[in-house]
Design a protein around this nucleic acid. Structure first.
Lengths: 190, 190, 190, 190
DNA sequence: CATGAATGAGTATTCATTCAT
DNA sequence: GATGAATGAATACTCATTCAT
């Protein structure tokens, strides 16, 4: 499904790549994208050279992290869409995106920004998710569960906005749920 | 409450300070906080030395910019609160905060950062706004226009989130209005 | 005569700039262009930041060094051209270029390379010298002292080549003089 | 004279070594010595590891390339010396060296670097050529075709210089020939 | 033997901040 | 007070060389 032909990658190389991605995800998410590459490499237990062998640019690393996130979301979304009725699936997916996008805002924003600039891989997986979202949205609208005048751009904006809101709320589950209620109620037809 | 007594500041010094604040607001808002101090100074028509005389740190400059913004919002809010009935005032104020927070998100978020890390001056004006918002919120709730279980933290989170959402929508006024509708509808009692 | 309007430059700044140029000339000439910027800065008694304030790029520094050399050569050449008869002036100038171009070859080559790629300033002073050389060449040819079929490109190639030859000869003055004799004899009409 | 006894080298190993040398010659000549080892290995169709097994150092690779060149020149020179009269042989050999040294100058200069710093193998083949050149030179001088006061060092310097000159002239065959004429005329007894 | 992943010292450049003019 | 030159720590990225697979 991906256009590039990658050779299997040696066992240790694959492990390093994975560690790098994990560490980068954690670090970018909690401390922002300003963290030095060297620190990421150290945290992953490899030298900088290794980091740059796997990801030729810091930006490429960031992109890879986001692609992985987006793909995870897309996979879950697909499962949700398949297993429930439209309205439910739509809301479940909305929650999913919010939960998975948790972390530093500058980071989460890339979800939407992807559609605008971004490079190949990101573009691709971002497009995939957008398509899924569009379908879910239409389904929920046809089921009468969501206001029919809400477009995909607004939906994404609401998702990004909700993510940001959640970040500022911290962990309090009651408050978080209240935010979801407000947004979900607001999206219903009047 | 602040320990230092400020002497009146010479006329030209005051003018420089004001220009610096104006330019910094513009620059931080449109291009983010990553812009070099030197560039800000140049745009304001002064040397870097002057910038650092007025604001001992880049962070201090950023803070000053935000304080000014918050104070402007507070003033408007006060006027709104005085001149309209509670529910209307509440919504008008919500819009106001969103519109005035426009620009780079990292920036707008400082509103909420209040209790967390911010410095004295920011703390202070942020607290002032929070008080006003709390009052407006309570008023709107007593008037039956807003769900009674919505707390101040959730309100602020919604504001920050809405700001973010707006940023991602760009200028399209119809879409922006739709976001407002969703959030306002969602805040109403069920 | 130079197109850019430079303000006078503070005394210390001028001194630093000059030191930087001197050190860079020395270092590039004797050890090649691979020498780290930091070392050049240290040798000039300034921080790297200062180096980069004066020359925004390592390449810019190299260019400045060469421009200075070229300008020095051009000035001397002009004086030579004015004070002697064509044939003599031509040969004197040839010697001058060789002597002034001494140093690491990669470096000296830039003289000719200048006409090909190079940036504004270098281009300019390089063009100036080329014009002078062309005039001297023509004069010498009309005086019957140089083969008439020798063009400016060949002349410059011979200069660069002679410089290289001299480098490989070291300081032995007799051998050096013999090289000059060979080249000068060779340039005479047959 | 060299202490290590080399075992015959497996067929594929020999092939790899040869390919490496060919590629390195091509690459160093056309793009300079700054090209990364990895790229050379890739172009030769082997891994870096293999490159470093055959040549323990990048410098060693460079040296090997030059030795091969020098040996090729030496072989041709020997044939020339055997088959023509002294004066002709001398000039033909001069041309040969120039033509064979074509390419990046830093490269051609190794010829002269002989007595200065070079390592064993280079030293050796360089010395061999020098001996041949000395003989040819003497022959030409005895035949009255070359000024008798020209020593071997000057001859080599002239060769290196001529190579450099040629590089700066590009491909124009007429101009190149003119350079040869100048140098050859210049070398004649007065 | 071949491979290519890992390493990490080394390099150019930026930018907040200080201080001599 | 204002200026802008000087500073140097910090940072992304490269590349010769080593070594596990």
């Amino acid at each position: 499904m991906s256009g590039a032909q990658e050779r299997p990658l040696r066992a240790d190389a694959a492990r390093n790549r994975a560690r790098l991605l994990d560490v980068a995800t954690e670090v970018f998410t909690t401390r922002g994208v300003g963290v030095p590459t060297e620190e990421i490499a150290r945290a992953a237990g490899v030298g900088v050279g290794t980091l740059f062998r796997h990801f030729p640019t810091k930006e490429a690393l960031l992109e890879a992290v986001m692609v992985r996130r987006l793909e995870a979301i897309a996979a879950r979304t697909a499962r949700l869409a398949a297993g429930s009725e439209p309205a439910e699936a739509f809301l479940a997916c909305f929650r999913l995106v919010i939960d998975r996008s948790a972390g530093r805002n500058e980071f989460a924003q890339a979800l939407a920004a992807a559609g605008v600039d971004a490079h190949a891989a990101l573009q691709e997986s971002s497009t995939a998710i957008r398509a899924q979202l569009a379908e879910l949205l239409t389904g929920a609208q046809q089921a009468g569960a969501v206001r029919p005048d809400l477009g995909l751009p607004e939906l994404i904006a609401l998702m990004v906005g909700t993510t940001t809101a959640m970040e500022h709320l911290g962990a309090d589950p009651v408050a978080r749920e209240r935010i979801f209620e407000v947004v979900f109620d607001g999206m219903r037809p009047r």
